[in-house]
Simulated assay, not measured.
Amino acid sequence: MLIGCPKEIKNQEYRVGMTPSAAMEAISRGHSVIIETNAGVGAGFPDADYASVGAEIVGTAAEIFKRADMVVKVKEPQAVERKQLREGQILFTYLHLAPDPEQTKDLLDSGVTAIAYETVTDRNGGLPLLAPMSEVAGRLAPQVGSWTLQKANGGRGVLMGGVPGVGPAKVVVLGGGVVGTHAARIAAGMGADVTITDLSTPRLRYLDDVFGGQFKNAYASKNNTAELIAEADMVIGAVLIPGAEAPKLVSRAQLATMKPGAALVDVAIDQGGCFETSKATTHDDPIYEVDGIMHYCVANMPGAVARTSTIALGNATMPFMMALADKGWKQACEDDEHLLNGLNTHAGKLTYYAVGKALGIDVVSPSLALKM
């Protein structure tokens, strides 16, 4: 199979879909790899690293999309990229279709077989290709939140860990999954007073057993959430419904109950955001203010630490990418129901229920798509 990796073109996205290590693995198995020139430079991988393992360096993304049997990326294809996709081609990347009707329409119109990192599952009910970026984003969230809290950025001017005689920042983390757990750990490590919420009492028990003493936890009822955010200096939104639009946990009306200059960090923004007032921002212009509350809603947070993120993502995606290349997408998905869960579009049909529900589009079951 000919595997192609274009340079990411989303604003300030420095990650790359294939590491030289992944290229070497694919080539060692008899596949061919083409990489757009400078695709890996932002993550610290120059063209020479790819060429040294046998990959072909090509001058334009157009050549990648024209020639490749499978296109491997990081972020969802932008409009100019989607126009170049075609039926019979595999697209393997993050998609986040539920809040993005334009992208969904373009992928369906192209006929491409699109497999989304964020909906591939594992036998434990986890999301193995989303987890590494969730870990990165979770660990980044308190860092960017503390920066947002600085007075020069419009924040309350509160130091995360306080100082002797002055209390620490109060941080509330909404969601006790991968993002939330890592966010709470880092915020607590910065000296903040941290409370994490979740709707699952078994999950809260687990967090208490493992991290008891590092941070507090609370059941995520509407009343508890309202009381906690009213006292918070920072709220980190870390909820996820796989493949679906994120639930709105904080309304605009509730902003009036918060401390002026408090910071909202929405890690769920790729799935539409979990605050009613969230809108996607970029690393160029990451913060905006609504009703006196500062919002940080960068849609590709892990791109800020591109090398760490690229290597972590590459470690997770490589086995699945190799299965798709070695067997073809149909056989690979027949052999692995968890990879099949990643199938979002095929031959003009939507194949992921949560996306169809969010966008009001008819869905064909993935198992039926295998027969198309």
Rank of each mutant, 00 (worst) to 15 (best):
Thr225Met: 15
Tyr117Phe: 12
Val71Ile: 13
Asp291Ala: 14
Cys333Asp: 05
Thr317Tyr: 01
Ile311Lys: 12
Leu174Phe: 13
Met301Asp: 10
Pro132Asp: 08
Val355Asp: 02
Val355Cys: 02
Met133Gln: 08
Pro77Gln: 01
Glu227Ala: 15
Gly303Ala: 03
Leu91Ile: 08
Leu2Lys: 08
Gly176His: 03
Leu204Asp: 05
Leu370His: 08
Lys7Asn: 02
Ala116Gln: 05
Glu118Cys: 04
Ala244Asn: 05
Thr121Met: 13
Met133Asp: 03
His346Thr: 13
Cys5Pro: 01
Thr119Met: 04
Val71Arg: 05
Pro302Lys: 06
Ala218Lys: 14
Arg252Asp: 11
Val173Pro: 11
Leu264Lys: 09
Lys105Ser: 12
Gly177Glu: 04
Asn11His: 14
Asp106Ile: 02
Ile3Trp: 06
Val136Asp: 02
Tyr14His: 14
Lys330Asn: 06
Val58Asn: 00
Thr197Ile: 05
Met294Phe: 02
Lys259His: 08
Gly314Ala: 05
Tyr50Ser: 00
Ile3His: 02
Glu87Met: 10
Asn344Met: 12
Thr345Trp: 08
Met258Asn: 09
Lys170Asp: 13
Glu276Pro: 00
Gly348Arg: 10
Ile9Ala: 09
Thr308Ser: 14
Val33Ile: 04
Val72Glu: 00
Thr148Val: 15
Leu343Asp: 03
Ile311Tyr: 12
Gly180Asn: 02
Gln331Phe: 04
Val80Asp: 15
Asn153Cys: 03
Ile64Asp: 00
Gly145Val: 08
Leu159Met: 15
Tyr206Pro: 00
Leu204Ser: 03
Ala48Asp: 14
Met190Glu: 06
Val171Phe: 09
Thr119Asn: 01
Asn124Met: 14
Gly165Lys: 11
Pro242Gln: 02
Gly111Arg: 03
Ser110Arg: 09
Ala23Gly: 03
Pro132Phe: 10
Lys357Ser: 10
Tyr14Asp: 03
Ile34Thr: 00
Ser278Glu: 13
Leu255Arg: 07
Asp69Lys: 07
Tyr14Lys: 14
Leu91Lys: 02
Pro101Tyr: 10
Gly212Ile: 01
Leu207Asn: 01
Glu337Arg: 15
Met133Arg: 06
Ala169Met: 11
Leu149Gly: 07
Arg203Met: 06
Asp285Thr: 14
Leu264Ala: 11
Ala169Cys: 06
Thr195Val: 15
Gly292Phe: 09
Glu289Gly: 09
